[in-house]
């Protein structure tokens, strides 16, 4: 049986959604309470890491493959940069908060800080995807001794197929 015991699997099945939602909550209210994109991204990456631990890597990678994760990773950065550059277009200055200047919300409301939630979402994409990538890549590699004594690094999945 891949992964951990039934208890862990069942608990994971119940908990994973809440962890994921908590990450999203931290991100979108990041400008009001402690949290923000980085904390949210770490929490979301943790939910995937929990899946990896409980069900095995294949299950987690079926949900979010490494390629897809690095696409999220790069697009997070690009989103951040595009919003920052839009600041030049609309506000005249790099990183200008042009949305707040136009639509000033009520203080302490969810939509009150213009572009900051967008930055938080971009950071969430970046941090979540890259942390998951780092975890999987560092955990997946195994060093195998070849027949002629030389050492080679392979992904663990490949070795099992041999």
């Amino acid at each position: 049986m891949k992964g951990m015991t039934l208890i862990v699997k069942t608990v994971t099945r119940w908990v994973k959604v809440f962890i994921f939602l908590y990450g999203i909550y931290l991100t979108i209210t990041g400008h009001l309470t402690p949290g923000g994109g980085f904390a949210g991204g770490v929490v979301i990456a943790c939910s995937y890491i929990l899946l990896t631990l409980a069900y095995g890597r294949e299950f987690a990678l079926k949900n979010l493959s490494l390629g897809k994760a690095s696409v999220f990773d790069s697009s997070g950065v690009l989103l951040f940069l595009i919003v920052a550059l839009l600041g030049i277009g609309f506000g005249g200055i790099f990183f200008a908060n042009f949305l707040q200047a136009r639509y000033p919300g009520e203080e302490f409301a969810l939509f009150s800080s213009g572009t900051i939630p967008i930055y938080n979402i971009a950071i969430l994409l970046k941090v979540g995807a890259s942390l998951f990538n780092v975890f999987v890549i560092l955990s997946i590699l195994r060093i195998v001794v070849e027949k002629d004594g030389s050492k080679k690094m392979v992904a663990e999945g490949d070795r099992e197929e041999e």
Binding site: V71, S74, S75, V77, L78, L81, A84, L85, I88, F94
Partner: peptide
């Protein structure tokens, strides 16, 4: 001066664009 941010934005942006 409006060109100044592009000194950092262009390399960083194209770096991730290339990666993507």
């Amino acid at each position: 001066m409006a060109l100044l941010p592009s000194m950092v934005a262009i390399p960083l942006g194209i770096a991730f664009f290339t990666y993507l």
